[in-house]
Write a protein that binds this DNA or RNA. Structure first.
Lengths: 236, 236
DNA sequence: CTTGCTCTAAATCTTTAGATCTAGTACTTA
DNA sequence: TAAGTACTAGATCTAAAGATTTAGAGCAAG
């Protein structure tokens, strides 16, 4: 690493409520000449103030602590906007934990059960700006990620059959599109070069088809069924 | 693999517009006793009809084809809801391509420049139901993924300072909450046990604070700024 | 060539919505 | 105690929104 040229070690803070475990990690890391553990923290509040003060290069964050959960902690730290990179550390390889940690900005994820060499490798990779996620955990992540994306799609598309938006005519879609921008009848009429009465007719037909009573409900229905995103897709 | 017990090879379809390259892959795969390439497709339309007909175990999909783009193709295939697993294959390691491919359900991603052993390993992993993403590509993915998540957050939260929702009083938040459900003044009045006039007063104050002219715009503002999700979070 | 759908638009009416101003009560803070 | 803020609510308008009915023009399919 280039930093070693300046004899500046990569500074690490370890956050773990288990003192013995934290000490173990400290010993392990301090054996490496490129790294030094500059502080330990037994809970999230202490951790955050230490991180603010010392702005370490890397934080090793235990995820399963009793009081505050580590996920929230990572989120808090990321909000600080420092260059500090976070590696999550847990005993479990649950897909949703991995997903959430990586989603909010963790740069690596390792299991406590993994060999100590893995820890050092994670430090090496992450300190160089890379992501470190062992392939097993990577699989877990994608398991969750792809399921989440699938659900979101299903939610937005809502099975096409039950999506009342599909019964709208082209013109009605256009009108609804303008309604979802918060435009008045008069405004819609001007934009589409039709009379206000015609707009009212269309809007009434839309209400019938979407089974709602007013524009606000229509707009809400449209948004929930992914209307706006579909529109954007069409334009783009 | 268990399938080998029944002497049933894992069936692969290769989709690549470059015939020479497709042939090369075919040769390579057919050297393995656990796999057989049952078809080649030079374009997406042919590919989809072949996949429908033969329902292969794995599809090797070239992403950078001239006519239809491979990403859309993957999406189409996933929509079929088969057990077929897709491995993306490209010449480039662009973060957004990897992100998009994995997002829509690809089970693996490999570069054409990678050693042939990688291809076989990918087949092995994916056919066992795992994800195959070499660590370099994994890093690329997360680079894009975390940036995307960060942007979305920034868009939704809108920096608190500029989020006009923060200027609303508790009562006004309640009223706005009901407006976002498409309820009339009268309805809001009944639910909150106050007069309709009072509701109008609140709503007017909301309009002032959010700098909008009517309820539809207020609701849209609220939704875009993550109002509903905040409400849900409070309830839960 | 007739049936049906889409888009257009008028007339008429009732109901909400929204703007504005005033004002009382209650609670907090300087 | 006086000033400030939140919540309440009245009166009085005007402007939109929405319901309903009727109807003509254009176009596609049977």
């Amino acid at each position: 690493m280039r930093r070693a040229d300046f004899k500046r070690k990569t500074r690490v803070i370890v956050v773990d409520d288990n003192y013995d475990h934290a000490s173990g990690i400290r010993e392990l890391i301090n054996l490496e000449q490129d790294y030094e553990v500059i502080a330990n923290a037994g809970n999230v509040d202490v951790a955050i103030s230490l991180i603010k003060k010392y702005q370490p290069d890397i934080v090793l964050m235990d995820i399963n602590m009793p009081e505050t959960d580590g996920i929230t902690a990572i989120s808090e730290i990321e909000k600080l906007g420092l260059k500090t990179r976070i590696i999550a550390l847990t005993g479990y390889d649950e897909a949703d934990l991995i997903y959430r940690a990586m989603k909010i900005g963790a740069k690596g994820y390792i299991l406590k059960t993994m060999a100590s060499a893995q820890l050092i490798r994670a430090l090496d990779e992450v300190s160089m700006g890379k992501i470190y996620l062992p392939s097993v955990l990577c699989s877990k992540f994608f398991e969750y990620f792809q399921a989440a994306e699938k659900n979101e799609k299903a939610y937005n598309a809502a099975d096409d059959e039950e999506n009342l938006l599909n019964y709208l005519t082209n013109r009605e879609e256009e009108v609804l599109g303008l309604l979802t921008e918060g435009i008045t009848y008069k405004g819609v009429a001007q934009q589409l070069f039709i009379s206000e009465t015609t707009v009212k007719t269309h809007v009434n037909n839309i209400f019938q088809k979407l089974q709602v009573n007013d524009r606000t409900q229509a707009v809400l229905y449209a948004i929930n069924k992914g209307f706006s995103s579909r529109k954007k897709a069409k334009i783009a």
